[in-house]
Design a protein around this nucleic acid. Structure first.
Lengths: 266, 266
DNA sequence: CAGTGGTCTAGACCACTGG
DNA sequence: CAGTGGTCTAGACCACTGC
């Protein structure tokens, strides 16, 4: 019995849009492969398969859902397009993770002018501050909390080749990140998002950034060791887990003398 | 005979990787649908079908290439994912264009703080300068020209609600844009990239942007009506046509008091 | 070698568009 | 209604991985 690690089938609407005298608006027709995708997504959210692990093979999933392999293939194709899952021919389909060398800095678009990939060696990290407090109203709004709810604030500086380059002010909801401390952060090798995955079961899946140019104030100058009124790139990120739940507000300030924010349009 | 508007079949390698005692490196196996994609891409580049027009139906293409519908479907799926083509159920598959209301500002990521889509009404455009000259070395490098080759330089200011917000310095290769003048630009309603398509047969397909924060100098202050040393977002874009040919270097300066550059990560 | 994802086919049927 | 893209199936075979 392949009863382990399989999502419950729930209700698959197999019949094509069985609208007997269509009742009202929005027939809400959803193709089979979308429903399958939804079910797999649920399993991912619930943590049925952990980041880095393989999910069942297409054939197994097809058998379990009682659909053809082509249909689950299309479902998985979309999950792969969303970067929720990674396909590897001959090996299987893996829950994607921030903990791999390849995609270390998946969400960091800052590049050195020299153009080298994956930065000039790993960044040096310095935790400036890490404290629990009550959410200011703007933070609460961004994280879909009530003002006054417990949040965690982390301030840190990232340096490349001993040059302070990024100053980050990170806000996390208190509940999911209970037990996160400065020491915990300092003791962990690798990307912060990887720690979130392994230690707190929180997967960052998607993010939105709002970018502006601002002038460095006194505090920024100290921490980033730049002259007063140096223009800085202000990058405000909201990162989401599954289900579009906001799980992080990150306000970053980038020094862009020797680095730039890279973006691709299509 | 469906001989019009069909790409020549050229050589389709149907046999699966017929490597008799593999000769050297890189078998260069390429699936059928990739080859089909390449052929359709050629037709697009050559202009066999113009932006906004439909391409032949999947069935017709399948018949012409002597493959199954599913195979051309997969080819077209990728073209659609690359935004080179747009599928519309029941109508057909269309060569994508910058001239449609929906995607007017496909490459402009600046959003008003108010969050409203498609900006607060259309932008007011003011051509500050438009001249032909010989390519400086940095421009030549970006456009894959030789230094001294003819280029066109356009300077313009975009305003939203009468507030100057974007200052752009646009460099175009002289040859493909022969006949482009300030008056031509001023007389055209709609996005500049739409004009490029209809008047010069140049389709911008993809772009890369490098973003930094800089301080406004005197000229910037005049044109954008901001105080000296106001921090500005510097956006250097290289836009490509088919075949990854660079066709535009655009240096933009954005005022980010009431607007922000929006990006999505996944 | 068995097991995985990847390609290709042929055919049936559905949903949407427009005349 | 005919024609388009969209879904789903079943089956064959290929390419890659690891034992």
């Amino acid at each position: 019995m392949a009863s382990t690690a399989f999502p419950s089938t729930e209700s698959l609407v197999t019949e094509g849009n069985a609208n007997i005298s269509a009742p009202s608006v929005t027939p809400a027709f959803s193709p089979l492969y979308q429903q399958i995708k939804g079910l797999i997504l649920n399993s991912l959210r619930v943590g049925e398969w952990k980041p880095g692990e393989t999910i069942p093979s297409e054939i197994d999933l097809a058998a379990h859902f009682k659909v053809s392999q082509g249909t689950v293939r299309k479902a998985i194709d979309e999950l792969a397009a969303d970067n929720l899952v990674v396909r590897r021919q001959g090996k299987g389909t893996f829950v994607s993770t921030h903990a791999e060398r390849q995609v270390q800095y998946r969400f960091l678009k800052l590049m050195p002018d020299s153009g080298d990939l994956s930065q000039e060696g790993p960044a040096q990290r310095q935790i400036v501050d890490c404290r629990r407090l009550r959410a200011p109203s703007d933070v609460a709004r961004a994280l879909a909390l009530r003002p006054g709810d417990a949040v965690l604030q982390v301030k840190r500086v990232l340096s490349f080749a001993d040059k302070p380059t990024i100053l980050e002010d990170i806000w996390l909801p208190g509940a999911p990140f209970k037990g996160l401390t400065a020491d915990r952060l300092r003791g962990y090798e690798g990307p912060m998002y990887a720690l979130f995955e392994t230690e707190f079961g929180v997967r960052m899946v998607r993010a939105e950034e709002k970018i502006r140019a601002i002038s460095a104030d006194h505090l920024h100058c100290q921490l980033l060791r730049v002259e007063p009124v140096t223009p800085l790139l202000s990058v405000e990120r909201i990162a989401f887990t599954y289900h579009d739940l906001p799980m992080e507000l990150r306000r970053g300030l980038y020094v862009t003398n020797t680095h730039y924010y890279r973006n691709e349009l299509s």
